[in-house]
Computed example of a mutant assay.
Amino acid sequence: MKAIERRIADLWFTEYQTPNLRLGLRIEDVLLNKQSKYQHILVVDTKQYGRVLVLDGAIQLTEKDEFCYHEMMAHLVLCAHPEPKKVLVIGGGDGGVVREVLKHDIVESVTLVDIDEEVIRASKTFFPTVSCALDDERVKIMPMDALVFVKEHHDEFDIAIIDSTDPVDFASGLFEQSFFEDVHAALTESGMMVAQTESPFAEPELLRDAVLGLRHTFERAFLAWGSVPTYPTGLWTYAVGSKKFDPRIQRRSAPTGLKYYSDTMHSLAFELPPFVKEIVNGGNLKEAKGN
C-alpha cells in the first residue's frame, strides 16, 4: 500500500484590488476576525509582510511597508506649513499618521476622528509600533462620523489629514467636493489638507475627480505620489490643498529617523509622471487603466 504523503496546510489571504487584479499573501496565523458595527476587521500574520490589518477585505496596513504611506501622509503637509500646531486626522484609527504627526515637536494637539472604535482597539492590541502615540496627552480621540465633525468646527485646525479607507459605504463622502469645502472651513487662514487619492492605474476617475474638487475648493491644489507596495498597483497618490502656502515648498526639515520621506523626497513627490498629469487634467482614463 502506497504511503500517504504529508499534507501541509496552505492558507492564503486574497485581496481583490480591482475586478481584474488581486494580491495574495500566505498566512501564518489569523489573529482577529470580527464584524464591527461598521465593517469587517481582519488581522493576520503573513510570511511576506508581517502582520496585516484588513478592513472589509481591503489591506489598510502591513508591518513591513506601513511607513511608506504614513510618512508621506503626515510629513508632506507638516513640513510645508511653517507652524502646524493644531492637527486634525480623519480616519486612521490605526494610529500610524498620529505617530508621524507627533514627531514634530511644534504640534500642540492632534484630534483623531474615526467612526470605528474597534479599529483603534485592534491596532492597540496587534500593532503596538503603529498605535504607540494614541495615548499621548496631546491626542484627543473622537469616535464619530467625520462628515458631522467637520461641519461643527470652523477656523480651528492648521492641518487636516484625510486618512480614509476606500470610497465605499460610510467612507464614500470623504472623497466628495462638499466634504473638501467643509474641511476648508475647518482650517485656519493658512491651513492645509492632504487626502489619499488611490492609484492612477486602479482608480483614475476617482483621482481626477478628487483633484478637481480640491482645485475648486482651495486656493492652491497639487498632487504628490509615492510607493506603497501592498496598495493596489503599488503606486499611490496624495492630493494636497492649501489656503495660503505652496505645499511644494518645504519650510521645515524632516524629522530624524524616517525611512521613506526626506527633504529631497518632498519636492520630487510633486514631480508627476506625464500620464498622471494627463489624468488630473482630464486626459485618457481608459489608457491609464490599461483598457
Rank of each mutant, 00 (worst) to 15 (best):
M1G: 14
R6D: 06
F13Y: 13
Y16E: 11
Q17D: 06
P19K: 10
V30L: 13
L31S: 15
K37P: 05
K37G: 07
Q39D: 13
I41C: 05
I41L: 12
K47S: 08
Y49D: 01
L53M: 10
V54M: 04
L55H: 04
L55G: 05
G57P: 07
D65G: 02
F67R: 11
C68R: 02
M73C: 03
M73K: 00
M73E: 02
H75T: 09
L76R: 14
V77G: 11
L78E: 06
P82C: 07
K85H: 12
K86I: 13
L88Y: 07
V89D: 05
D94Q: 08
D94I: 07
G95N: 00
G95E: 04
G96R: 04
E100Y: 04
L102K: 11
H104C: 03
E108A: 08
S109W: 01
S109T: 12
T111A: 07
T111P: 02
T111K: 05
L112R: 00
D114M: 03
I115R: 15
V119W: 13
P128M: 05
T129W: 10
V130Q: 03
S131F: 09
S131E: 08
A133E: 12
A133Q: 11
L134T: 02
D136K: 00
R138D: 10
L147Q: 13
F149E: 12
V150S: 08
K151R: 12
E152S: 10
I159L: 03
I162C: 02
D166C: 01
V168G: 00
F170N: 06
S172N: 04
L174W: 10
F175P: 01
F179P: 14
F180C: 10
E181N: 13
D182C: 03
V183W: 11
H184G: 09
A185L: 15
A186Y: 09
T188N: 06
G191L: 05
M193C: 15
Q196P: 01
Q196M: 06
F201S: 07
F201A: 06
E203H: 14
E205L: 14
R208T: 06
D209N: 14
A210L: 13
V211W: 02
R220V: 15
G226T: 01
G226H: 03
V228K: 06
T230K: 00
Y231V: 04
T233L: 02
T233D: 00
L235E: 00
L235I: 11
T237I: 06
T237H: 02
Y238D: 00
A239R: 03
D246C: 15
R248S: 11
Q250H: 07
A254C: 11
A254Y: 03
Y260F: 08
Y261D: 05
D263R: 04
D263K: 05
T264E: 14
E271V: 15
P273T: 07
P273L: 11
P274T: 05
F275D: 04
V276L: 10
I279M: 07
V280E: 08
G282T: 13
E287S: 13
A288E: 09
K289P: 03
